[in-house]
Nucleic acid binder design. Structure first.
Lengths: 201, 201
DNA sequence: GTGAAATCTTTACACCGTCAAGTTTGTGGG
DNA sequence: CCCACAAACTTGACGGTGTAAAGATTTCAC
């Protein structure tokens, strides 16, 4: 083995290299050639494992969903006994993931998927995350902490608020005037409060 | 005048060319060279009017904010007498802008602005839009349709829901199962209802 | 062991952003 | 009037990018 051929687990190494570049130089700097160089491999080597740059991005995005699921589900288990805290803290886990690794978050939710059939792994992980949040919401509904009715509609509404907050935060589109006054967590709590029964305006 | 030099209003022509490419081929295909060719000009000509590709994008984004302001303020005036409808319809105008010209919307809200000082026009238009929505919300507060208190905090919460919904819509990240059941407008109304006083869960 | 399949390299091409130098055009001061 | 100067635009070049094709090397099934 000349150390040049048959890296061993290049596919995964490329994903990890992509993540490293993503966290060090941001999403703008993520290129196939740079990923390849970072993995110590020729610039066309990635094409043995990914049909496309899109495919690499999809794999990185899938990884993002997996990591997000780990963190969110851990929080969900921890607050199992208290559905209200469970909803708040799982939502907060989303925000934290976005703040900690903004570029990974951006890629994960950048909407790479035009045709869902192209990246089944990605779709699977997305649905898994979706289902997890729906479960949290349904457990809130069972305890009458959230209103009864279409849990997916409720989920999308709450999820939208979450995503919008993150998107505005990462895009520097919230007036710093406001951010000096209230923290991201306070905004999140303020948002969520409008959905809880009883805590209404 | 050989028709080659001194185009007349190249700066604006480049922005329009960018918008054309954006609507025809999407944000991925937007390149300086293609914009230049589309305007019938050499590939380096844009550098006489924009320091950067970023600067062109900022100009296009600024244009997006202007167009958005026109549409939203027109709706705001139309529903002046009814603050509740005013909030609903201005929010819906946002969603429509995003659905009608998704790539222009994406660029406008892609968070190009790292240093706010770089593109003062962009920041100005952003703040103008922000202020407009805050006004709508404050007029709702005056009529006790929305809760009293920090209007900017309230605005950011509602705005987050709006942006999140749009982001998930444009990113194809809402389950089609749900979208077959409820329309984007119904999701928006469902969201907004949680903020109105009296219409509480 | 041998041939086929998988993995990786090399080469090549078109496109991209950007810079430097040169060319053309409009303009204002003498 | 004209001419120097500034602004607007072209040309050419550089390094980087995605990706396709062809060749080299290794592994693996038979």
């Amino acid at each position: 083995m000349t150390d040049n051929y048959h890296h061993g687990d290049l596919k995964n190494a490329l994903i990890q290299a992509g993540l490293a570049i993503l966290s060090q130089e941001g999403v703008q700097a993520l290129s196939l050639r740079k990923v390849a160089k970072h993995a110590g491999v020729s610039h066309a080597a990635p094409y043995s494992h990914f049909t496309d740059k899109q495919a690499l991005i999809a794999a990185i995005a899938t990884e993002g969903y997996k990591k997000l699921y780990e963190q969110v589900s851990a929080v969900a288990v921890h607050y199992q006994a208290d559905p209200r805290s469970q909803l708040i803290e799982t939502a907060w886990a989303y925000v934290q993931f976005a703040i900690d690794t903004p570029d990974h978050f951006k890629i994960t939710f950048s909407g790479i998927v035009e045709r869902e059939h192209d990246y089944p792994d990605y779709v699977e992980q997305a649905q898994k995350n979706f289902a997890l949040i729906v479960e949290v919401i349904e457990s809130c509904q069972r305890q009458n902490i959230l209103q009864q009715g279409d849990s997916e509609l409720l989920m999308v509404s709450i999820w939208s608020g979450l995503h919008g907050l993150i998107h505005l935060l990462l895009g520097n589109q919230l007036p710093s005037k406001l951010l000096n006054r209230v923290s991201a967590r306070e905004i999140l709590l303020f948002q969520l409060n409008h959905f809880f029964v009883g805590d209404t305006p």
